[in-house]
Nucleic acid binder design. Sequence first.
DNA 1: AATGAATGAGCTTTCATTCAT
DNA 2: AATGAATGAAAGCTCATTCAT
Lengths: 225, 225, 225, 225
Amino acid sequence: MQPSGEVENLTPDLQSQSGRSRDPERTKQDILDVATEEFAAKGYAGGRVDAIAARTQTTKRMIYYYFGSKELLYSCVLARAYRRIRQIEEYLDLERLDPETALRRLVEFTFDYHDAHPDFVRLVMIENIHNAEYVKSSEEVRNANRPAIVIVKNLLERGRRDGVFKREIEPVDLHLMISALCYYRVSNRHTFGTIFDCDLTDPRVRERQRRMVTDTIASFLLTAD
Amino acid sequence: MQPSGEVENLTPDLQSQSGRSRDPERTKQDILDVATEEFAAKGYAGGRVDAIAARTQTTKRMIYYYFGSKELLYSCVLARAYRRIRQIEEYLDLERLDPETALRRLVEFTFDYHDAHPDFVRLVMIENIHNAEYVKSSEEVRNANRPAIVIVKNLLERGRRDGVFKREIEPVDLHLMISALCYYRVSNRHTFGTIFDCDLTDPRVRERQRRMVTDTIASFLLTAD
Amino acid sequence: MQPSGEVENLTPDLQSQSGRSRDPERTKQDILDVATEEFAAKGYAGGRVDAIAARTQTTKRMIYYYFGSKELLYSCVLARAYRRIRQIEEYLDLERLDPETALRRLVEFTFDYHDAHPDFVRLVMIENIHNAEYVKSSEEVRNANRPAIVIVKNLLERGRRDGVFKREIEPVDLHLMISALCYYRVSNRHTFGTIFDCDLTDPRVRERQRRMVTDTIASFLLTAD
Amino acid sequence: MQPSGEVENLTPDLQSQSGRSRDPERTKQDILDVATEEFAAKGYAGGRVDAIAARTQTTKRMIYYYFGSKELLYSCVLARAYRRIRQIEEYLDLERLDPETALRRLVEFTFDYHDAHPDFVRLVMIENIHNAEYVKSSEEVRNANRPAIVIVKNLLERGRRDGVFKREIEPVDLHLMISALCYYRVSNRHTFGTIFDCDLTDPRVRERQRRMVTDTIASFLLTAD
DNA sequence: AATGAATGAGCTTTCATTCAT
DNA sequence: AATGAATGAAAGCTCATTCAT
């Protein structure tokens, strides 16, 4: 396939010797990466096991060997996606900041994460189309994500105690608003962008909306009727 | 000959009395109603032409007779859904109200419409999964929905002229925020509800969030840093 | 495929015009015939839907169109096989004959039917390998075959009343013995024939065994310890 | 990584302590025991190498290491089953008994063996479904079982010489009848039991039929037309 | 001698669609 | 204008088996 002559990027991985991959864990991650793209792009029903296999170093048979079924593969994709957002959330470390700064930081982080991970947003969309069947069945996902509310709760209490936050609001409701404002512009990028003729991926638009969303949440908590 | 179990060539028996239904337009609407439910419930790829036919007064063959293909049927479903929200939007009649009242009314209407039409929300989700391919191809949908921005634009101008709205904000950004806050709690009902153990369909929750969302938008526009 | 020249047996069936069969009922029977052979030859698990399709005028798809699944096809094959033996049983008309003649006629008929229908015997073997799951589920098969016991019961009563039959015996036990003696030489044709080096399909062997089996049953009923 | 659901590469954990079992012969017997059950239960085509491995102390790989292929494993299962019935037959020791007693003993032994070994009966059924391909190929099986005819032949000759047996009958035919009457009630337990609503495993039924079968064979040989 | 990892080939089944009147 | 019958193509999945040490 490669003609003779100088070949610079001779990949030093052992795997292609006689077609067998040496590293099962790497193969599994490879499959998960591709499956994430496929399901995020086409949905669960629209995603094709064949298509995943074709873009992988392995065969379709290996997908079943490692994951058992299309459904189980989808579960693993989703579990990993939810695990990742949670891991990063832990780095936030809002406790040391004053309430308003902490709030702004939380919103900005949420904004940035959604903006940077459209595939995660799409997986969540797809999971909602399936009535969250997998999330309902996975205690892991539920447990891993609930702490998000605790973070918001602690922040709210601190802000109110300090007299900075003027509003009464349920932690879950605040979390919902922040999520909504960060999620929608990614999830509905295509319909909204098309209908209103604006490019939601444009960096300038992103910056403008990032400030607006943060200000909206802040102005709500910091004022009162 | 066939024992239990579904077999394709089940004679359609009584349903299509004497073989043909009298009213083609009614038949088409019937198909569209069922198709809307099916696509909203299962997505485009997950939706089954057979399943639509089975819950219709006609046969699968008629779907192809009237709509040509699954894709065209989906287009019609989407077109109708977008047409409907637009029709109702026209009743809003915000011009006669003072800016703040008009703004609150706009948010409340948007909130109520999304809350009352989860199938519409799901169709929009599905269309986004498909990268808005249909919306991109349909001038009708685009034209019918753009006026929404004009409404917001006029309202913003009037509010600023009157000195009521203190913020500089792009009409499209305001529309985005209102939509996001109303859409997310319906679109992500299942994942959000499951993870944070709250019922987003509960009337009390709805009322609380309706007020909160309206206040959030209002407080943003009516205040300044 | 056929070279030019005189072609005597031009089958007058219309079916092969443009590849579509005109007669669905005939197609179904065709599939059932081939499926009977396939399942009888290879068992349920060993039978291949592809193999059935290949020997049919239709495609594999049609098998699913008409029968829904491999399992349902197998059910239909079995139902038809049981229906047939029952239909023929009704022609026996033992009532008019004296008890001994009637008994001999019953045995001979049973012998001949098994001998002439090895595929039926094989289907029964296969059904027993599957613990009669289909027979258990089919009221039709059970109802259709139970009358066989009534025939035996009536005959036994008549024979005892007339003083011809000297033995006390349960109808179901007599039926079992007759069946066993007629069934085994067909069901175990291959192992028995191979091990003991005899051809159980040889007409002379069949005649000898037919007489023997009949005499065995008769001698049992007509004598007493 | 894998949530619920069976996946192939489940680590075999504790089972093969330190990776290797000490006793190869014991392992082989273990595999044969499980394989006998599996093939007897599901047939050759229906039996699964995976299922056998799962219920064994070893892995699927070992089955291939020791037996080479599914087919060879099946052969070994069958060989062992035939070897066993033969071994026990040798204990019969009919020579010392008078002809009628010996005959009754032979029938009763055959009856009891079949009744006690339904798996053997099922293996023979399965082998017949496969047209005795294995038995045909195995000189061992053929040689080991033919003596059964010699036993019957000697008995018949002795009985006729003594004037006790009145019938002319081929040894192979007598063996066939005895086998048929003992085999059928086990082989067709499920279909016969279901259709005629009787439990052929009930001890009282067994006793009744045991006597009947023995009497039938005896009455046939001891009487003449 | 023994084994964990991997797999090609082929299985049953499903799907949107068209044929033929 | 309307429809019953049929179907090609491809999907998800399973099976006995071999690779490579």
